[in-house]
Amino acid sequence: MADDPASLTKETFISKVPKKSPLMLRMIVLVFAMVCGVFICSVCLKQISTRSKVGFMKVEVIDMPCSKPTIDPSDAPFVHFPKPTTYSRAECACHPVRYFAILSMQRSGSGWFETLLNNHTNISSNGEIFSVKVRRSNISTIVETLDKVYNLDWFTSASKNECTAAVGLKWMLNQGLMQHHEEIVEYFKRRGVSAIFLFRRNLLRRMISVLANSYDRDAKLLNGTHKSHVHSHHEADILAKYKPVINATLLIPNLKQVEDTTTKALEYFNSTRHIVMYYEDVVKNRTKLRDVQDFLKVPQRKLKSRQVKIHRGPLSNQIDNWEDVQKALQGSRYETFLNADYRK
């Protein structure tokens, strides 16, 4: 039987198709695999993103603000909840903190007074910070330093940063305070800072302390070391042996200058929330320390200091030219300084 041309052509065509089929199938499988891969990757990425968001949300829940105590509206400007940049206040974050500054003059008992405050478990007074000139070179450096103190980012041996209830510093009137008083008063009002004035009634005794301390800076009577404050009666007796000579001619003008500076300070900061304390009153009546604790709104504690008074006894034993000083002050408004109780 003769072969049919048509059937031969059909068989030839059919025999050629299988040669192209494997290549096309491979291409289809490859494309399908790529599509599946892209789909699977996208699903995985979405799952990872979702987990990240969940984790972030958990952190936010942990850092949620805590419940702060109810505060009297009139007291609100003086209550703060600082957020230090150098550490976390942790469980103390919701404990209110009050800001204060001890404003005083050298040798007025401010060092002793500050040790009493720091004896309180909730008070941190960071010392005479502005004794360093660069910190008081201009109002900008002053504000920068104050911000660091009141943000609880200033570290000293007195710092009780996490759970402190009152934080402040000791500031002498001649350390930029009077020079920039307008800006500082504005800062105190804006930040809610309270002022504790500490002065000395007997300015003659203060003068003796100033002169003796100035002498010891060079003489270094305590084994070649200068100490402004001491913690033993033995050291106090050594420093008290020095008897300064007081310029009797300039005595009254000098006393008046100190008096005027005190008056100006009270006038400048009159609009600031403040309390006025005198060294002699605190020594004589320790209930004055209760007034300070009430002022700072901290729990009442019995406060102690290790410092020992250097100049004790009558003034006649502490001044080298006592008779000249007596004559200069007799009949003046400062005559009472001569016979004041030596225990003060």
Rank of each mutant, 00 (worst) to 15 (best):
K241P: 01
P73G: 08
V282I: 06
E128F: 00
D260I: 15
C94F: 03
Q326R: 12
G55A: 12
S209G: 05
S316F: 10
A101T: 04
I71D: 11
N161S: 15
C92E: 01
S209P: 04
L315W: 03
S74K: 15
N161D: 15
L45D: 14
W322H: 10
D324N: 01
K46A: 12
H233A: 13
P73K: 09
V59P: 02
E114V: 05
D281A: 13
L211D: 01
L146W: 01
K19S: 10
V149E: 03
K58R: 13
H95L: 07
D72G: 12
G127Q: 01
F81R: 08
N122C: 00
N202H: 05
R286N: 08
S316I: 12
D218Y: 11
D147V: 06
N270Y: 14
G313L: 11
P69A: 10
P22N: 07
V29T: 02
R190L: 14
S131W: 06
V193F: 09
R206I: 02
L222P: 03
G55H: 12
L8A: 15
N247A: 02
T145I: 07
C94I: 04
E280V: 01
D341A: 01
Y342L: 02
Y342H: 12
L239K: 05
F13P: 01
D4T: 06
F269K: 08
V193D: 10
G192S: 00
M105R: 04
G176I: 00
A236H: 02
A2Q: 09
K220Q: 04
R98W: 10
P84L: 00
G109F: 04
D72V: 11
R343S: 13
S104A: 10
E128I: 00
Y334M: 07
R107E: 00
D341R: 01
K297Q: 14
S49N: 13
G331Q: 00
A76C: 08
N223F: 06
S159L: 08
V59K: 15
R290N: 15
S108M: 06
V308G: 02
F197N: 05
H181Y: 12
C66M: 11
W112G: 03
T70E: 15
V35A: 01
Y187R: 02
L222V: 06
T272E: 03
M277Y: 03
I208L: 13
E267C: 07
M64Y: 07
Q307S: 12
V210Q: 08
M1W: 14
N339Y: 08
T141Q: 09
S110I: 09
F13Y: 09
A166C: 11
T164M: 07
S124R: 00
A158E: 12
T145C: 10
H80P: 00
D3K: 15
V167C: 01
I246W: 14
K304I: 09
E186I: 05
G37K: 01
D63M: 10
V35T: 04
